[in-house]
Design a protein around this nucleic acid. Structure first.
Lengths: 215, 215
DNA sequence: GGATAAGAAACGCAACCGTTCACTAGAAGT
DNA sequence: ACTTCTAGTGAACGGTTGCGTTTCTTATCC
């Protein structure tokens, strides 16, 4: 269904690129090595972000990457192995925790970093993967540890600095309180879908987090 | 995989029930009508709760309900139709909003109702369905409107009564603040899986919600 | 020019969908 | 009690989709 349509589009593009059409800029050359590998991983991430884990098929990935299944299987022995690398590929590097001198600005900066992640294709794919009931529990646990926990610690750090400045109620500096911001962003994402607007973060900080943290 | 194991179990059970074993209490008679229908719906809900939407297959449902595909297709023309009825079947009736005279007790009661729902098979199935990226967006929207919004309104009502008693900061009576409790429970469920313990709710109320709501 | 790997197409296999058919248990009517 | 009729059971079917493999042609790198 969506598969047939996708395939049709791919065919059309590839047909055009084969010869004759000067408006086709890319896809004129046959990619190799790292170039092709990142194209395949990008395709996998994009597919998961758009259609969820159920849409991730080797044939779909190959088609979206404008290549063949053989080139995919030459690099990854199975769909699960491709999934692992695609998730690693989607994971952004950990940003430095901001220190602006005020809790409000620190929280805004931190939540905006999180917003950028959650609104990106990689973030969508990550959500789709982590909340997929049929996915590998072990791999999900690994991703949680690598992605979620360091970011939660960044929130705790911001709260601790706010406490030292007298801005934050001392007993609010705990992991449970620290995860209120991220939890509400995830909740907003799950309830109303992407993109989560920037205004949501501002309202979240001013109407929920600051009243919660005030001494 | 899990499929083969399930089938094996089903076969074993049915084989035993066919004849000879007096320790088989159920499955001696051939069920009909409403009896069989609820058995099929229960099977569908259980399958979604355990293995997610990807595990929901007509053959799996029929096997889990100890019946044949024909009996399933006689009632529901397609998997989607079965899914709709299974979700309705999983939905609990709306409980009455408690009024204990204190915000703390009201919130505890309300969140415990939510906890009972989220920890039940129906609640797990509901989660699996609503957060499935490949599910029907329209049906998800309907479920959100029928399940989420009335419950969110109950939280707003509790907050409003608390404001009238002077327990709650007046500008905390808004939907955004009201969804903090549910959002954190959902977040806990998604991060650490079921069951969400009762102690989590108590800690949530005392360490997060009451500080957030205090005047 | 030769080694390597990309592209494209087929293959067998398995799972599942939705349908159909023959058989039979149980309910209803006489 | 006997018959009739409904509906549950169990098994097959053709069709589709996706997995993982294989083969062959051809572009690209050295």
């Amino acid at each position: 269904m969506g598969k047939a349509a996708l395939r049709g589009v791919v065919r059309a593009v590839k047909g055009k690129s084969l010869r004759g059409d000067p408006d086709e800029v890319l896809a004129s050359t046959r990619r190799r090595g790292q170039d092709l590998e990142t194209a395949i991983l990008d395709a996998a991430v994009g597919i998961i972000a758009c259609g969820g884990m159920a849409a991730l098929t080797m044939e779909g990935v190959a088609a979206a990457a404008h290549t063949g299944k053989a080139s995919v299987y030459r690099r990854w022995p199975s769909k699960e192995d491709l999934l692992v690398d695609a998730m690693s590929h989607a994971l952004p590097p950990l940003e430095v925790v901001p220190d602006t001198g005020s809790v409000r600005e620190d929280l805004l900066a931190l939540l905006r970093i999180m917003l950028g992640l959650i609104n990106s294709p990689g973030g969508c794919a990550l959500q789709a993967f982590m909340f997929d009931n049929s996915a590998d529990k072990h791999l999900i646990a690994v991703v949680k540890k690598r992605v979620m926990e360091p970011r939660q610690q960044m929130f705790v750090d911001v709260l601790a600095r706010g406490r030292d400045r007298g801005e934050v109620r001392p007993d609010a500096v705990d992991p449970r309180t620290a995860e209120v911001g991220p939890a509400l962003i995830v909740h907003q994402y799950l309830m109303h879908g992407p993109p989560v607007p920037d205004a949501f973060v501002v309202e979240l900080v001013d109407n929920v987090l600051l009243p919660l943290l005030r001494p």
